[in-house]
Computed example of a mutant assay.
Amino acid sequence: MTKRNATLIGFTAVLMWALLALFTVGAVEVPALQLNAICFAIGGAIGAVWTTVTGQWRALTRVPLGVYAFGTVGLFGYHFLYFSALRAAPPAEAGLIAYLWPLLIVLFSGLLPGEHLRPLHILGALLSFAGAALLIARGAAFSGDHALGYMLAIGCALTWSGYSVISRRFGSVPSLSVTVYCLAAAVLSTVAHLCLETTTWPSTNLGWASMFALGIGPVGLAFYVWDIGVKQGNIQLLGTASYAAPLLSTAALVAAGIAEPQLVLAASAILISVGAALAAIAGRQNR
């Protein structure tokens, strides 16, 4: 597989994450960790079917347990910290801090063997972050009263960026290993749900459909294609392009009539697009 194709495959994860907010609104009755458990179980089931069809179960038995532990901590840890941050701090502030992960991916990628971080990579990531911040942090007002939530959000950003960058060091590990990550994360999410939440199921067909759609796409297939992208693609470009997710997410909410269109969408789109273009130029300079 070429680096370009792997990057395009990885970017489909960003497109799926753009639907995360829309489907989450549809499944709003379901507690966060319960929803996590169900979605990871669906994602794991998809991987199990894929592994069976391709006959790769034996290959998965050769993956070191440490790699499985790493992947499970990455998937479960990110979501647990994210939901905890949103409970301990206002969503705008916590969401903005958590969405430092694409910028951190770009910065951390410079530590990888064979990767060269250029000034345009950093400038592009900063411009794209500014574009995302326009959407995420409207009305944000940071306060020392929510320090714990901010710390959790920082942990969230570090967890996902670290997971994404370190995954590249495991390039020889098949992406279907995400099957085990998802199933293990489903078990941990179930335990956390039973300890911290009250089980609640959707009361409408829309709620059920949204819950299953989350498990199939944003909290399912997205992890598999992201794994391919960060292992074999242009990781700096993927990191910068990930800021398209909040933009596309807001656009999806507008299209569904849940949010109102605003001029800030256009400004955000320009900043994110320019940032991604700069990262792409830097990638061509490396080649």
Results as ranks from 00 to 15, higher is better:
Ser161Asp: 07
Val180Gly: 00
Ser161Lys: 07
Leu196Glu: 05
Thr200Asn: 09
Thr240Met: 02
Ser175Cys: 12
Phe223Cys: 04
Ala192Ile: 02
Phe170Gly: 08
Val230Thr: 08
Ala157Gln: 07
His193Val: 00
Ala157Phe: 10
Leu238Gly: 03
Thr204Ser: 15
Gly239Leu: 04
Leu237Arg: 05
Gly217Asp: 08
Tyr150Gly: 01
Val180Ala: 00
Val230Glu: 07
Leu152Cys: 08
Gly229Asp: 09
Thr240Cys: 10
Asn205Leu: 15
Gly162Lys: 09
Tyr163Trp: 13
Ile216Leu: 15
Asn205Ile: 13
Tyr243Lys: 12
Ala241Ile: 12
Gly155Asp: 06
Trp226Pro: 13
Leu176Ile: 07
Gly229Tyr: 11
Ala213Thr: 00
Asn205Phe: 14
Tyr224Arg: 07
Gly229Gln: 10
Thr240Lys: 06
Val191Arg: 00
Gly239Asp: 03
Gly220Tyr: 03
Ser177Ile: 00
Gly220Glu: 04
Tyr224Asn: 09
Ser172Pro: 06
His193Phe: 14
Ser167Trp: 04
Gly207Ala: 03
Ala213Ser: 13
Tyr224Pro: 09
Tyr243Cys: 11
Pro218Met: 03
His193Pro: 00
Val230Arg: 03
Arg169Asp: 10
Ala185Ile: 08
Gly162Gln: 09
Gly217Ser: 09
Phe170Trp: 12
Ala209Asp: 06
Pro174Ser: 11
Leu158Asn: 05
Leu206Thr: 14
Ser161Asn: 08
Ala184Leu: 14
Val230Ala: 06
Ala213Pro: 07
Leu183His: 04
Gly239Trp: 02
Ile216Gly: 02
Ser172Tyr: 12
Leu183Asn: 01
Ala153Ile: 09
Ser161Phe: 11
Thr200Cys: 10
Ala222Leu: 09
Ala222Glu: 00
